[in-house]
């Protein structure tokens, strides 16, 4: 097992978010963490990367307890792409991707020819090489995300942890990011990522982990996890799932909200600035 998590409890100081989470991930798997906002998906990813301490339980990365790994060793084993990365100052694409080479350099070393080669290859792979000397701030969201992905690739880690790598991007870019991920997994990389788009997650992932209120509600192949019963339970709203006969993809949607009561009608009237007729 590349990654194995045992009885993990985690969260921020004084507030436990994850409770007794256990699962293992094998080499080449593309695991998507799905579930409603606040279910603990990002917290789980951060804890796996060691950015948040585990309050209880253990995490093993390639067989080693992560608390036993040095900072550098950890960074050579697992890359992490954070949600909505912000770049201060007008750093160029090259300078940002260069930081991915950090774990391979001694403190007194500067990056060399070989690093430059890896940086260029990573950018070329994600289709962002043309932006090499442009400030990251000037790029569009989709272009930036390709740059950040290239930075994680330049880190050359067997495991990649990606927090919502495709959220907020145009459909084309979203699918592109997922395709990159699938290709990387076929090539032997292991990816665990947080995904909001359920149908995209289902199409591209080899496995889904449905989180709800800090626990794993379901774990398995997409069609086993994305059932109306499980999703309704996880999201707290009535959800239907049908397979689209044309595409073979899953259509996931909420059914009958049933919350159109009188109180809401009044609220809406106030919001719209209309007189409430009693």
């Amino acid at each position: 097992m590349v990654l194995s998590i045992r009885d993990l409890c985690a969260g921020y100081s004084g507030k436990t978010i994850l409770q007794n989470v256990s699962f293992s991930v094998g080499k080449g798997e593309l695991v998507s963490l799905v579930g409603p906002n606040g279910a603990g998906k990002s917290t789980l990813l951060k804890t796996i990367r060691g950015l948040l301490p585990a309050l209880q339980g253990k995490i093993f990365l390639q067989g080693t307890d992560i608390t036993k790994l040095s900072e550098g060793e950890f960074a050579r084993r697992a890359g992490y792409l954070q949600q909505q990365m912000q770049v201060p100052f007008a750093y160029t694409v090259r300078e940002i991707v260069q930081t991915g080479r950090y774990p391979y350099l001694h403190w007194w070393q500067q990056s060399g020819k070989q690093d430059e080669e890896i940086i260029r290859a990573s950018l070329a792979y994600t289709g962002a090489l043309e932006f090499l000397d442009r400030p990251v701030q000037e790029l569009s969201g989709g272009q930036q995300q390709r740059v950040f992905l290239a930075k994680v690739l330049a880190q050359q880690t067997p495991v990649l942890l990606l927090d919502e790598p495709a959220t907020g991007l145009d459909l084309i870019y979203q699918e592109e990011i997922f395709r990159f991920c699938r290709e990387l997994c076929v090539a032997g990389r292991t990816i665990v990522m947080v995904v909001h788009e359920l149908s995209l997650a289902a199409r591209f992932s080899s496995r889904l982990l449905l989180l709800s209120q800090g626990t794993v509600l379901a774990d398995g192949k997409p069609e086993k996890v994305l059932t109306p019963e499980l999703l309704t339970k996880a999201y707290g709203a009535s959800i239907a799932v049908t397979e689209n006969p044309l595409t073979g993809h899953m259509d996931i949607y909420t059914t009958g909200s049933g919350r159109q009561d009188e109180r809401r009608a009044k609220l809406l009237a106030t919001v719209l600035g209309r007189e409430v007729t009693e």
């Binding site: 050579r76 992490y80 954070q82 912000q86 201060p88 300078e95 260069q98 950090y102």
Partner: peptide, 23 residues
Amino acid sequence: LVLSRQLNVLVLGDNEAKAVGMA
């Protein structure tokens, strides 16, 4: 001057710097 490369990583924030293995 020697640590300027490290400073480049530090600028990107705690999580980002830790993620690439910086103390």
